[in-house]
Amino acid sequence: MDERALYAAVAVIGGVVVGTVGGGLTRRLLRHGPRTQKLRVVAAPAAAFVFWVALATGIAIGVGLLAPDALRPLPGRTLAYLPRVLVAGLLLITGYAAAAATAVVLSGGLARATGRTRREAALSLRIAVMTTVTLLALSQLGVDTTILTLAAAALLFAAALAVALLIGLGGRDLAREIAAGRYLRRIVQPGDHITTGQLTGRITTLHPATTEVETDGAELLHVPHTHLLSQPIRVQSGQRRAATPKERQADASR
């Protein structure tokens, strides 16, 4: 076996080993210790960047050992191209951190507004930000991103249209129930005894979209607000229990 081929293989393997060790150390330094949350977020992309730089260096050394003439124009080209590579790498790392931060902010805002976390919305936002940053990084490297930009724009438009249709069509019934519940709270309260159609019982809780009724048979039913308002309703003010702090807070938020 040619010694140059052996040395080239050692150089490539060494690049993999150095990249793995260097990437692991970078990830550990950024994730542990008294670091800020922003540094922890960029730990993974920074470690990947270190690994690929080390691997590329090992491959370049291996190619130089096998074919020295192939690398003679490389220093000048590398010096001319290196700033673009560094800028593209910084764009990817910064974009990853920005995507993670905006996703956390969106999740927190939706959780405070709706009481539930929306992982799908946060994931969609991260994908959108990373797609934009990746296109910018490729453009910085000199890659023609016209087709990729059109494809990404088409996908984002299709996703936004699908979400709008789901909200517009799927949330229409829920919006109607919430509006009916606001009016229903003016005429009934927890503790009232109601009779409407074949339903007879005592109101226990008024939820955003349904009314919880305890029937005379001690059965709990969740009745849509629009169902109660669709026919005559007889209300007998009963012994209304005092609302709990949680219920008062829920009513105030509505």
Rank of each mutant, 00 (worst) to 15 (best):
G115T: 03
G115L: 07
G115Y: 00
R119L: 11
R119F: 13
A122G: 14
V129C: 02
V129D: 08
V129P: 02
M130A: 14
V133D: 01
L136P: 07
A137F: 02
L138F: 09
D144I: 07
I147C: 03
L148T: 08
L150R: 14
A152S: 10
L156F: 13
L156V: 10
F157Y: 05
A159I: 10
L161M: 01
V163D: 00
V163P: 00
L169K: 11
G170D: 06
L174T: 14
L174M: 08
E177S: 04
I178T: 02
I178K: 05
I178H: 14
I178F: 15
A179N: 08
R182G: 05
R182D: 12
L184Y: 15
I187C: 06
V188A: 04
Q189I: 03
Q189N: 08
T195L: 09
G197R: 00
Q198K: 03
L199P: 04
L199R: 06
R202D: 10
T204C: 07
T205Q: 12
H207E: 12
P208S: 01
T210K: 04
E212A: 03
E214L: 05
T215L: 03
E219G: 00
E219N: 05
E219C: 00
L221I: 13
H222V: 04
H225K: 06
T226M: 11
H227D: 09
H227V: 10
L228T: 02
L228H: 02
Q231P: 05
Q231L: 14
R234G: 08
V235H: 02
Q236C: 00
S237N: 02
S237R: 10
G238D: 13
A242C: 01
A242Q: 15
A243N: 10
T244L: 01
T244V: 08
K246Q: 14
E247S: 03
E247M: 08
